[in-house]
């Protein structure tokens, strides 16, 4: 087996190592594939579907699909842009994403993705779901109104913290994050130093006392779109 794989993304030749996913190879090559649930240090969850690319004519998620020699990947196409906008719109109407008072605003990956995709307002009707806020933990609060079910906290707590504080319960549109207790987050062994406390892409898992420290204009995505760090590698 050769120790290098060559394939193309939107016609650009990309070199990769065997066993890498399209996402990993693209990141190294400075090509940004939009994503929400993916975080390099965690097992790919493949749930948001924003990183859907067309591989040899078939849709696949870049975060889970291994590279193969000669693979032809389409990423930045008008069709995929439309699908990605639709997915981000879905996530916005599914929850209660009221950015103006959200602690993560400006540093939120969902919001930043919407900015990057040029979304001014979602095209779908809002669901206005009734979701709880859990502030029982002394250092962390859990705001399910903003959860996008990316699974990062579930994987981080289980695989990195070795705790299993979070899990998914329910199914279909009622699927949600639950904590490992018959009561609340405050009754679990979650610690603010846990990896799971720092992986949430949105304002669902928040560390108390850290909000609004960075002034407007200097936050992560105020000036440069999400993904710029990857694109700057090129």
């Amino acid at each position: 087996m050769s120790d290098q794989i060559t394939f193309t993304i939107d016609g650009v030749e990309v070199k990769a190592k065997p066993g890498q996913t399209i996402m990993q190879a693209a990141d190294e090559a400075g090509i940004y594939i939009p994503r929400l649930c993916y975080l390099p240090e965690l097992t790919a969850h493949g749930s948001c579907r924003v990183c859907t690319v067309i591989v040899n004519g078939k849709p696949q998620t870049a975060c889970t699909q291994p590279v193969a020699e000669g693979m032809i990947v389409e990423n930045d196409t008008p069709e995929l842009l439309e699908h990605r906008r639709n997915l981000v719109d879905m996530l916005f109407v599914e929850g209660n994403h009221l950015c103006m008072f959200c602690e993560r605003s400006g540093n939120c990956e969902l919001q930043a993705m919407a900015y990057r995709l040029g979304i001014l307002a979602p095209k779908y009707p809002y669901f206005y779901p009734d979701k709880p806020l859990d502030s029982t933990h002394k250092d962390i609060f859990l705001e399910l109104n903003r959860c996008i079910l990316c699974g990062r906290c579930v994987n981080a707590s289980a695989d990195i913290d070795g705790k299993g504080v979070f899990g998914f319960v329910g199914r279909s549109i009622d699927k949600k994050i639950a904590v490992n207790s018959d009561k609340n987050l405050g009754d679990t062994n979650m610690a603010v130093t846990d990896k799971a406390a720092s992986v949430c892409p949105v304002g669902s898992i928040n560390k108390k006392g850290t909000a609004f420290k960075i002034p407007y204009g200097q936050r992560l995505y105020d000036q440069k779109p999400i993904g710029s760090d990857i694109e700057n590698k090129k």
């Binding site: 950015c99 959200c102 919001q111 900015y115 990057r116 979304i119 105020d222 440069k224």
Partner: peptide
Amino acid sequence: PYEMIKYD
């Protein structure tokens, strides 16, 4: 321009 789209 990018910097102009803000939800907050």
